[in-house]
Computed example of a mutant assay.
Amino acid sequence: MTDTHIFFVADGARLDWQSWLLAASLAQAHAGQPGVHLYAYAGADWLPQIGPVTRAIYSETGVELRPLPQAPEWAKPYPHGNKIVAATDRRGDGRGIFLDTDMICLKPLTALAALPDTHVAAAPEGRPTWGPDDRWQRAYDHFRLPLPEARVRLLRGKRPEHLPYFNAGLIAMPEEVGPDGKRFANHWLETALDFDHRCAIAQKRPWLDQITLPLTMARFGYTAHVLDETWNHSLSHRGDSIVDTPDVHILHYHRCMFLEAAPQWPGILSRFFDLVPKAHHAAARDGLRELGLTVGL
């Protein structure tokens, strides 16, 4: 069976607190699943500040804490680029799956490991947050690429068809080295840096990762495997339409108020405290409250 390497970035207090819930949910969703490996990445400045609650949760969930590789020279500071930097770390052959920390895993992600080595999987973005089309034309022109004929259907509002554009909160990528000696993550970082420094185009941030994801696929011959909404189910701004959908793999909550409105939340919180050693319950409650969640005594 192909190994599944699931990783996230927990660099800083807020991401650290979010990672507690993510790590617990990943461990619970993949209990008994062979070949699943979990990783958390933190920068050199944050690693010494990681406290006993985080370390205890990572120990209980089997998360390997790793230093974030050194950031490249972006044109301007770009914290979102940490996901690309983390992706370049070598974890082993198989399928790498990056997750944002503001996510809860409800079902195993191992089916994504069965994709061909040339496929990169992600769900479309909800809305066309970067554009319009003439800006995309310039982006593809920068790399001397034709504008794609393929379209994806965005997942929110009127769900329009759009040039390939994906939410970068969940990306499943091959870990194998290609014929040029590089992995997908190296190609993505190379593309993002080139676009950041050399393409004179407006409003790259914070969407640089999402802009360059389809550009990387087009440059290096990867196939976009378009996931449906169950793989990256956004809870934000749904109002009364936040419902318990049993086929969802990932809840992407963005803000605590949306997570607390989800019918799955009481069970998520209960299972979290079932996993955390009781000696750390009080400190864990404090951290979740700092994050913005309502947690009882």
Rank of each mutant, 00 (worst) to 15 (best):
L112Y: 05
G12I: 09
R144L: 09
L155E: 14
E229G: 04
Q18A: 13
R255D: 15
F8K: 00
L259E: 04
L227G: 08
F195C: 00
L115I: 05
A200M: 03
A40L: 10
A150N: 11
H237E: 15
I242W: 01
S236C: 00
W46M: 06
L259D: 07
L275P: 04
P179H: 06
Q49W: 10
L215G: 02
R238K: 14
A71N: 11
V152D: 12
R151N: 04
A24D: 12
D244N: 10
F273Q: 14
M1T: 06
R285G: 12
D274M: 02
P72V: 00
L26G: 11
A185F: 12
D134K: 10
H249M: 08
H197C: 01
A27Y: 07
R151A: 07
Y78A: 06
G131C: 07
I50A: 04
K76S: 12
P263V: 08
N232T: 01
V53H: 12
V53C: 08
L26P: 10
H249L: 05
R151I: 03
E64H: 13
D286I: 09
N186R: 07
L293K: 08
P206T: 08
I171E: 00
T212K: 11
E149L: 15
D134P: 00
I250C: 09
L269P: 10
Y78I: 08
L208G: 03
V36R: 09
H37V: 08
R285V: 13
R255S: 15
A150V: 08
S234N: 11
R219Q: 05
Q33I: 09
L115M: 07
A200L: 11
E176Q: 15
R138H: 04
E176C: 06
I6C: 08
T54R: 11
T118N: 14
E161A: 08
M217G: 09
Y253P: 04
L215N: 01
T118M: 06
P124K: 12
A172W: 10
S25G: 04
Q264H: 13
W74G: 02
W17V: 12
P266Y: 06
P79G: 09
G267T: 09
A262P: 00
D209L: 06
R14S: 11
A172M: 09
P148C: 05
H281F: 02
D102G: 04
P116I: 01
K182L: 14
R159K: 10
S234L: 01
T245Y: 03
A44W: 00
L215D: 02
A200C: 00
G239N: 05
H233S: 09
D286G: 15
T101W: 05
L288I: 07
L235G: 02
F98P: 01
D196E: 01
W188M: 14
S234H: 07
L21A: 13
I57W: 12
H187L: 08
K76M: 09
L288P: 03
G157C: 12
V276L: 03
P79E: 05
W46Q: 09
G221F: 04
K158M: 07
S19E: 10
H281M: 10
G126V: 04
W265E: 05
I201V: 15
A185S: 13
